[in-house]
């Protein structure tokens, strides 16, 4: 891509999220989301192969539809209440807004675009799509949480956890698995949002960190399929074994960071006397855990049945910048001990 165009597009990607985050007027919030969508498309279609074109088209159509729904519901709200303030949504617009933002985020009944779009992108763009592009809509959700319908949010959340785990079971493509993982994680955030937005924020931040770590691991190892995961150990043995821990963290197993949000969310839901939902969520998370475990198994737990002839490949010192990978990996594995610091959140 032309560096001038690239610089304009990257700065617009930043500007769009910034405008949405700093706005108190629905029109500006909508405009930031639109700038984000527009700036994302050239990055997606960069390679111009048929699958990238298909992914870009699908992304454009779904995001444009969701944005239109957002604009429509804000206009209905402005019509009936006479103001454009972000936090003053009446019932009908708030339900429409929930559905529109869920479509932008890729939550369960509106999630079908996310895996297919993700599969058509390269890994760096997939990283941007699954982290940076979620920030603006998720922030809108966090701002308007007290006007939203609790039942709708819990339904969306539970469906997302279930569908995210279920659909990821049969996948062999890492990008699709990461898309389903994203759906399941966002489901957890939606389910806790009406009770404790602070915990939803915490879960969102940790989701960003863990997903970034996973994607940057995939970029470093240059792998997009489960069967190529099995041959990554001759490249960087240490990274391979650490990646297994990142996967367990995404699945939410105790000694890693990923356990923290799930633990606190289940705790909070039990305190609110909705232990049925909490139990169902915890059981549905096992579906996600299954495919994380399968990836971890393929990545670093397989062993050759007899003596292996190959050794670690001869290689140069890597020129890739790994500082971000190091930071996010450390944070996504080792942050559970600081969870007592998170108790003031609720």
């Amino acid at each position: 891509m032309n560096p001038y165009a690239l610089s304009i597009i990257m700065s617009s990607l930043a500007i769009g999220t910034t405008i949405t985050l700093t706005s108190s007027h629905w029109l500006l919030a909508w405009m930031g989301l639109e700038i984000n969508t527009l700036a994302m498309m050239p990055l997606m279609i960069k390679q111009h192969h048929p699958r990238a074109t298909e992914a870009t088209t699908k992304y454009f159509l779904t995001q444009a539809a969701a944005s239109t729904l957002i604009l429509f519901s804000t206009m209905i709200n402005a019509w009936s209440t006479g103001q454009w303030e972000l936090k003053e949504l009446s019932t009908l617009p708030s339900n429409m807004m929930t559905i529109a933002i869920a479509m932008k985020l890729g939550l369960a009944p509106m999630h079908f675009w996310l895996p297919e779009v993700m599969q058509g992108l390269n890994l760096m763009t997939g990283l941007i799509l699954s982290t940076w592009q979620k920030i603006a809509p998720m922030t809108l959700m966090l701002i308007i949480f007290n006007t939203l319908n609790v039942n709708l949010l819990i339904t969306l959340g539970f469906l997302s956890i279930l569908v995210g785990g279920w659909s990821g079971l049969n996948q062999t493509q890492l990008r699709k698995i990461m898309a389903y993982s994203s759906i399941a994680h966002l489901g957890w955030m939606m389910a806790i949002l009406p009770f404790s937005p602070a915990l939803a924020t915490l879960n969102f931040l940790l989701y960003l960190i863990m997903t970034s770590a996973m994607f940057m691991m995939m970029i470093l190892l240059n792998t997009t399929k489960i069967n190529s995961l099995t041959t990554t150990w001759p490249k960087t043995p240490i990274m391979t074994s650490i990646s297994m821990l990142i996967l367990l963290s995404l699945g939410g197993l105790p000694p890693t960071t990923g356990f923290m949000p799930k633990w606190m969310i289940l705790n909070e839901l039990t305190k609110q006397h909705i232990s049925t939902i909490a139990t169902m969520m915890a059981i549905s998370a096992l579906l996600s855990l299954f495919f994380y475990l399968r990836m971890a198994y393929a990545l670093s737990m397989t062993q050759s049945p007899n003596q292996t002839n190959s050794t670690t490949t001869w290689r140069h010192k890597s020129k890739k910048m790994t500082i971000l990978l190091t930071a996010t990996t450390t944070m996504s594995i080792m942050m559970l001990p600081i969870s007592p610091c998170m108790t003031p959140l609720y």
Binding site: N2, A5, I8, I9, L38, I45
Partner: peptide
């Protein structure tokens, strides 16, 4: 936004 749209269409 209009400028961005132009760049996106061109790109």
């Amino acid at each position: 936004v209009l400028l961005i749209t132009l760049f996106v269409v061109l790109e």
